[in-house]
């Protein structure tokens, strides 16, 4: 490592006159040190490359076919949620859905996205709108595990549902129907790290 420090020092010398000499000296210096160390430190470059290549993919990259499926894996496996999955990927928030949780996700079906004003989804999928998209998606997630029975219990106790964005959504129970923030729960799917409640609408912010 010491010769690297030395190279950094050399960068601070701006004398053109001495430049060639310095380069020669540096080369000689490295050569000598390498020879004296039997093998030298030429691996520095490769080592950094290796590190870069091995930057962990994050938990979303963990291959595990045995464990019960997590929220992301279940969503990816659902034909009704291709738009949602594409949006999650565009917003690059996959890691949130594979985390230890627990998390409850309200997952709008494809037709819910299709029902939005024309161009809305395309617009949100643009790279420059990533933050906005992430915010909208996060509004569909609540910390904790709330299946449809859990939601009914919450409503019975007059509790609102606290979402990951910080808003509170109202839970309305009407007979067997449960709506959260205006979206109707069509099904409840337990996953390894929480619950997916399939909903018929995208839950958009009030503004």
């Amino acid at each position: 490592m010491k010769h690297v420090q030395c190279l950094n020092i050399s960068e601070h010398f701006n004398y053109n006159l001495m430049k060639n000499f310095i380069q020669l000296m540096t080369a000689l210096f490295i050569g000598v040190v390498m020879a004296s160390c039997a093998g030298g430190e030429a691996q520095n470059a490769t080592q950094e490359e290796t590190l870069a290549n091995n930057t962990p993919l994050g938990q979303a990259g963990v291959v595990d076919d045995e464990s019960a499926k997590n929220i992301l894996q279940v969503a990816i496996g659902s034909a009704d949620h291709t738009t949602l999955v594409a949006a999650v990927q565009a917003a690059q928030i996959e890691h949130v859905l594979v985390n230890a949780g627990p998390l409850t996700v309200f997952a709008p079906v494809n037709s819910a996205f299709a029902a939005l004003p024309e161009g809305t989804v395309e617009n949100l999928l643009k790279p420059e709108n990533k933050a906005q998209l992430a915010n909208i998606l996060t509004r569909h997630a609540a910390p904790g595990s709330y299946d449809i029975e859990g939601l009914k219990g919450m409503a019975a106790k007059n509790r609102k549902l606290y979402m990951a964005t910080g808003d509170y959504l109202e839970i309305v129970v009407d007979g067997d129907n449960v709506t959260v923030g205006g979206a109707k729960v069509l099904a409840t799917v337990p996953t390894s790290n929480g619950i997916i409640n399939v909903v018929d609408k995208v839950i958009l912010p009030a503004n």
């Binding site: 160390c37 093998g39 030298g40 430190e41 691996q43 080592q47 290796t50 590190l51």
Partner: peptide
């Protein structure tokens, strides 16, 4: 000895 360090180094 730089190359020695590399041989036991298992990158993150």
């Amino acid at each position: 000895g730089g190359n020695i360090a590399e041989r036991s180094f298992v990158a993150p």
